[in-house]
Nucleic acid binder design. Structure first.
Lengths: 356, 356
DNA sequence: AATTAGCACTTGAAGTGTAAGAGTGCTAAA
DNA sequence: TTTAGCACTCTTACACTTCAAGTGCTAATT
């Protein structure tokens, strides 16, 4: 009994237990495994093996007269070495890509779609996440003249994002005045982060634009709003109602804890950020020693990269007995899809603004 | 006695029962009402009155040895004639208005804020709703030139809404070409609903713009997206997790039914639309004879008008023992706030003058 | 040495019976 | 008309029993 390597039969048994538990959600007994075609031994033998697996820490018993349930370590082993890649059907892949490609370029929208897709495909709660940028800078301003009291301010950000806002003013504004005003903006506010737009700079701006100084305040507000929106970490959750189908959440208290966690974006954010350094795929398996809402739940999270840089993350939250195989496959596909959908506007047309 | 009019004492008792039940969520017994200062009689008298109120249909007993609970009719009577206006504090009103006014003009954002505000203030689930317009038309196009491969299309809708979209193209585009293109758009697509933008019109458009015909397809797509977004009925729900604090939803099945209802925008929409003809404030009180998810829940809904026209609705969903008084007050205030926040850019632009 | 059959043992789930408590309706007295 | 008092009903909680599932261990078998 080497402690380091599991015998082939033990692996088989562990795998069978995990899969049966994922399917039915109840402790797995030695006899019920006999139906498994690959296991040719008797229930007594399985009992012996199960006892050893329990000693090694892969299994545990809720109580003496119950079957076995995988521990966190058991799931970990399963995910790391026993899980066989789930293969998505062409139809599923097609469906994902089609949905994503309808909203090219609008990352916030894509996130919303992504979380919905995830919850729909996995039947767990789907999560999509955009990290806080914290240093959005505008590389260029443009405008469109609406009427003498209103205009659309177009802001092109350094990363290529374009945002717009509508500005109303009491002034009577001509087209020429507007373009002059935009010129001033371009000269004075490009390349600045929101915290660099200080009061002296604003006052200076007001001096520069002369008669139009009343326009500065609403415009700066608009700029600030756009920047905050871009900077703000954003988290979309969809399909929590699916979780209620699992008996794990039949206790309302448990479920409420989960909901509150999802409401509190910061907490979940921490969960992603803490060890989100390099691993593209993170599997958090709930365990008893880490109490709180996640003790009975698992969270699988996949980073989304563009040009090697992390631009977001997608994930799934569900009961600890998650169908890891399927979930991981779907997350991979989706993260590819997102990167693809966003990449389209970048590979072909000249990418705006690397200048700072 | 008289079946038509309730005696003063009966009204008092009914009121006390409703309020005690709203507070504690449990059937109210005759003795527990003795603590009420306004009732000077004994528990036996109260019992007699309660028996009569039950005969009249205002109260019911879950079972023989339990206290009384208001029926739908009981609540209806309470709401119609016993509820005293809850007075919001100046602080609460202030907070609502401040939140709303930050996002002037962006109705979809306002909705999101509104639902959040509602759930926060009432501790029930908050709902904000925008009906489908189905006939959005664009009154003018504007544009901003980004670079030779991309532009921002600004669409001014007939109702004053402004939407923008970014368009990418393979073509190499000059500023002059762009403004010529926009001119053509303005000549051919203004005032049309999305279903009126037919293939012949699009082909004709392509012929008009000559070399830029490749630009037509992405631009039309962009227009269509914007129109659909405006047309689309939209429903924001926030704070369902609050509901879990009420024992009414301690049965997971009940709660899931509720969640599924909220997920299914159409159903809820029907609930608003069916009798949404003229009453600004609609109070749906769950009752046993109308089964389904709403049998144990109530839904209070307030239409939001601008210039007399319904532009949306806000509402609250919670257990049948809703604090109707408070909820109605908050809904009224919020609907005023929304109308105000949106109204600013229309008609009464003279008000915001003294801000700086 | 590994496997298996068999059996005693443990334990939670489900069912039953009883006692307590809350609330009522009714009757008779004030 | 109101109230005190009492018998009645029904839920809840708890203790107790029974049942089935699943185990661990021992002895027999391969």
């Amino acid at each position: 009994m080497s402690e380091r390597e599991l015998s082939e039969r033990k692996r088989l048994i562990l795998k069978a237990i995990v899969e049966a538990h994922v399917l039915y959600g109840e402790p797995v007994g030695s006899k019920s495994l006999l139906s498994n075609q690959q296991l040719t031994c008797s229930s007594a033998t399985i009992r012996n093996e199960m006892a050893e697996l329990e000693n090694m820490g892969y299994l545990e018993q809720p109580h003496t007269s119950a079957g076995r349930v995988p521990t966190e370590m058991g799931y970990r082993f399963y995910v790391d070495s026993l899980v066989k890649q789930y293969r998505m059907t062409a139809l599923e892949i097609e469906q994902i890509n089609r949905t994503l490609q309808r909203k090219i370029g609008e990352f916030d929208r894509v996130l919303e779609d992504a979380s919905r897709l995830l919850s729909h495909f996995t039947n767990y709660a789907g999560i999509a996440f955009k990290p806080s940028a914290d240093q959005a800078t505008i590389s260029r301003f443009e405008s469109a003249y609406l009427d003498e009291h209103s205009l659309v301010l177009v802001m092109v950000f350094a990363d290529g994002t374009v945002k717009t806002g509508t500005v109303y003013t009491e002034l009577t504004l001509s087209q020429q005045e507007l373009s002059a005003f935009i010129d001033v903006l371009n000269r004075h506010l490009c390349g600045l982060t929101s915290s660099e737009i200080t009061l002296p700079r604003i006052v200076n701006l007001e001096r520069q634009v002369g008669l139009l100084s009343a326009l500065v305040h609403p415009v700066v507000t608009c700029i600030y709003d756009a920047m905050s929106e871009l900077d703000e970490a954003n988290l979309k959750v969809d399909g929590v109602n699916h979780l209620l189908e699992y008996p794990e959440y039949s206790d309302v208290g448990q479920f409420k804890e989960m909901l509150d966690l999802l409401e509190n974006k910061e907490d979940l954010l921490g969960l992603i950020a803490t060890d989100g350094e390099e691993k593209d795929l993170q599997v958090h398996i709930g365990s008893h020693n880490s109490p709180g809402p996640m003790s009975n739940s698992s969270f699988v999270c996949r980073l989304v990269r563009r040009n090697g840089k992390v631009i977001g993350a997608v994930g799934v939250i569900g009961p600890r007995r998650l169908d890891y195989s399927r979930v991981i496959a779907i997350l991979n596909q989706l993260s590819l899809g997102i990167a693809g959908a966003i990449g389209t506007d970048e590979g072909e047309s000249g990418q705006a603004a690397d200048e700072n």
